[in-house]
């Protein structure tokens, strides 16, 4: 069965979503990710959705949920690489992912998490 890989990079987890997910796969990612956060005591999660051409309200809700659950587990979530057309559509849909931090690309998202972590020390 297909599965979305979760990479560990130091204290952070990197998830790159590259397939047009059906709903079950999205739900599974949500579960796997929270498990991994606890298992590796991650402090940050980067979700790279630069390959996603469509984000509907279901995927949007999944992203918001992941961010909220990660926060409870003491990890910050940054969503990176939202494409312009996807951003415009999300806003029109009425979904602006409030409460989720965003960055242009993985590098900037990583810098954001590092800064946050440094500030907490």
């Amino acid at each position: 069965m297909e599965k979305i890989p979760i990479l560990k990079m130091g204290r952070f987890l990197l998830v790159t979503i590259q397939v047009d997910m059906h709903d079950q796969l999205a739900m599974q990612l949500q579960e796997n990710l929270t498990d991994r956060i606890v298992a590796v005591r991650a402090r940050g999660v980067l979700i790279d959705i630069s390959s996603l051409e469509v984000v509907d309200s279901f995927i949007g809700r999944m992203i918001s949920n992941i961010a909220a659950m990660a926060r409870v587990l003491d990890a910050e979530t940054v969503v990176v690489g939202i494409q312009p057309a996807v951003a415009i559509t999300l806003v029109e849909l009425g979904l602006s992912l409030e409460g989720v931090r965003t960055a242009l690309d993985v590098d900037r998202g990583m810098a954001m998490l590092q800064q946050q972590l440094a500030g907490q020390r």
Binding site: I82, A87, V91, S96, T102, R108
Partner: peptide, 12 residues
């Protein structure tokens, strides 16, 4: 406000 929200989604 929509424009502001869309830019924020791109990290700006």
């Amino acid at each position: 406000l929509k424009t502001v929200a869309a830019a924020r989604l791109m990290g700006a």
